[in-house]
Amino acid sequence: MEKRIRVLVAKPGLDGHDRGAKVVARALRDAGFEVIYTGLRQTPEQIAEAALEEDVNVVAMSLLSGAHNTLFPKVVNLLKDKELENVLILGGGVIPDTDIPALKQAGVAEIFTPGTSTAAIVEFIKANVK
């Protein structure tokens, strides 16, 4: 029996900048995780459905368009609707510090802003995955 941590790396919203998401995806791969990368411009519904089909332990979203206050909580709620309460939900990208408390309140476990080391993300996942 071997448990392998599976992470969905998703880009919700309309910005086309996925360099950060790809760097994180690569770091998670090198940490021994299975990373399902779904590409750009995903709707919250697509992200939640992919998370269900792939039975992931973690959903990691990267967003640089400023729509995080709308889209992150929407994904959280859709995952709940699908009985995926145990999925660890992470956000990253250009997100103002003032927005972070409300996002955590909404159910995003952690927000990683520019300058975070990839090792910190890996450690957080290992410590908090259910």
Partner: peptide, 25 residues
């Protein structure tokens, strides 16, 4: 490292919301 990037869904995003399709990587 034992990890993997599973990227085939990138080309299949339009199928994700079709309840008649189930994709697993």
């Amino acid at each position: 490292y034992g990890g993997a990037i599973l990227g085939d869904r990138i080309r299949m995003n339009e199928l994700t919301l079709d309840p008649g399709v189930f994709i697993r990587s």
